[in-house]
Design a protein around this nucleic acid. Structure first.
Lengths: 348, 348
DNA sequence: TTGTACGCGTTATCAA
DNA sequence: TTGATAACGCGTACAA
């Protein structure tokens, strides 16, 4: 090996073929390779073929970091959700992924663990990537997070909820309305002492609770003792415990609106175990309408929310905005649907 | 504004402060800022303070793309799982995130939808980021994917399963052994016509089925008619349907080992609805031990798997390898645990 | 401990 | 349609 013109053969990375290698092999300029990869239409068919085979032979994979640096935009979308293990958000994320299609967009997923501070921190980290869009959950960002988002030079979509002043775009539904709708239904069916059981009690749960209160008040049935909440994470087990607590406090309660389906399931199992007939003795309603609600015995009334669709529309809106389109409707209400099932079919 | 020395003020990005801006404001060299951010110990306390406040005032956020390009390594870890909405994998991912700690590592998450082709495609995309490590699910990569992983110049961890020849590192447990263990338990308790019901039937499910078959054969109870499988996605609803199908085919079956807990739940609900006593008339066992299994009525026997721990150990191993450590044990068996509950407590 | 020079792999700009 | 050149913002190597 001659060592005179060795020119300090690249300090690292040494090995991976670059766009220059492909260009040389195809007998064209580097920029032509770049174009052939991104906008094939602007390159003649012949060169396109040559380049394609050179890419193939060399096993060339474009360096997305260099690309992002040069173009000042990464094909990356930052997504922030409160919890990955919560099936509800997993489905939203699934909708987002489905909306990616064959674009070579990447998703940067962040789990805030329901913490505004963590959301803010992750936002800062994500921003370092120069993302093409940002999707965040809820409307209750910290002032710092909100400032970051407002200053962000990319589309921002807030999801899951609707609120007064969107940062940019929004896709969600009214938690207040849905909470009120379930409660009204239970009252109409004839339940009188309708309890509310909620865990975690994040902002969205709070709004559902507010909807419950509104319905109870308008029916003249309001009673604070019927409300049981906790900031602890939600689970089936915890749902059972809270129900025991609730019924110990108000032995005459005849129905329960559960903050979510996990809790509803816990209540159902406890009723089965304690031989409290559902729906005659106790009515049960959940929230989110997980797939198993309709199969449970008895099947459980719940509020169907369109999680997958929320994710899907969020990414669609983000991509449209990335493409320069700025649609009229920046706030999309996907609604909800009350699914009435056996657990609230009072025999009366 | 003088326009002579305007020097074509940067083509884009125009706005975001760069490390040079921070350096100027702090009255130091750019490289010192760089060091202050990454290895504070190598910078004097005074300068560190000046730099810190300059960063604060300017709202400087390092460009991770430029950083990755210059250092030839992105603080990114690619993670490939078969399904995001499957709670089992969501928990694995959660364990991975927990193992990130305060490192500024990013996770690139890919959902392969149980497709080897898609896994291979995503792998290629991820590689464009020059990831610091790769985590993939299972041991049944396509030849192409395997080749890519073997050629990857970063640590690779295969998770969820154990196999003969690890690409690099592995964390998981034996699906065969766990399937056999549950089945043996049911046989020991006195069930004779133990059915197997499985959906999706990915490679891991296949191995659990193999474990079931082994146990049935060694007990002389093997009967192919007891096996019901489908490649359809698993769900509670589908679990119920498959159970109906199974019991229609073999009306005398007295127990069911379900491929996963969703299916087990579907079977339980159907038994409740059809007044088939559990566990006396029908024994039920699930797989994964979701939280609700112990709360169900009756509570359901299941195989506890350590999903969170698998994710956690995978990321720990990856990080150790990234730091240059190459531990003796490149294959970690986290085991499993049979949780025996009411659904298989035969009164006999 | 701090700074200078240069390169990382790609794309935007502008000209041919 | 194609190409030469100059950034993009940062880190490595080496010198001070």
């Amino acid at each position: 090996m001659s060592d005179a013109p060795l020119r300090q053969r690249s300090r690292r990375g040494a090995g991976r073929p670059t766009i220059a290698d492909v260009a040389k092999r195809a007998g064209v300029g580097a920029i032509t390779v770049s174009r052939a990869l991104r906008e094939p239409d602007r390159v003649s068919i012949e060169l396109r073929k040559q380049i394609a085979s050179a890419v193939e032979e060399l096993g060339y994979v474009p360096d997305s970091n260099a690309r992002a640096l040069a173009s000042a935009r990464a094909d990356v979308i930052g997504v922030l959700i409160p919890s990955l293990t919560n099936n509800v958000f997993a489905e939203v994320v699934s909708g987002i992924y489905d909306g990616l299609g064959d674009s070579n967009l990447q998703v940067l997923l962040g789990d805030t663990h329901y913490s505004g501070m963590e959301e803010e921190r992750l936002l800062r980290v994500f921003l370092g990537q120069r993302p093409s869009a940002l999707i965040v959950s809820g409307v209750d960002q910290t002032p710092g997070a909100r400032a970051i988002l407002e200053a962000a030079s990319c589309p921002v979509v807030q999801i899951m909820e609707l609120g007064e002043d969107p940062i940019d775009m929004m896709v969600g539904f009214s938690h207040f309305d849905s909470g009120r709708a379930v409660t009204r239904h239970m009252i109409e069916v004839g339940y009188r002492e309708v309890a509310f059981i909620g865990a975690r009690m994040d902002p969205r749960s709070q709004r559902r609770l507010a909807g419950y209160k509104a319905a109870m008040t308008e029916a003249g049935l309001s009673d604070p003792r019927l409300i049981t909440t906790s900031t602890q994470p939600s689970s089936v087990t915890f749902g059972r415990e809270m129900f025991r607590e609730a019924i110990a406090r108000v032995p005459t309660l005849d129905a329960v609106f559960c903050n979510n389906d996990d809790i509803a399931l816990g209540v159902l199992f406890e009723c089965n175990r304690a031989a409290l007939g559902v729906p005659d003795k106790i009515g049960i309603a959940g929230f989110n309408d997980l797939e198993m609600m309709k199969v449970a015995y008895p099947s459980i009334t719940s509020v169907r929310t369109y999680r997958h669709q929320i994710g899907r529309r969020a990414i669609d809106m983000a991509r449209a905005a990335m493409a320069g389109e700025r649609p009229e409707t920046r706030v999309v209400d996907v609604g909800f649907k009350l699914e009435i099932r056996e657990s609230t079919q009072r025999g009366a």
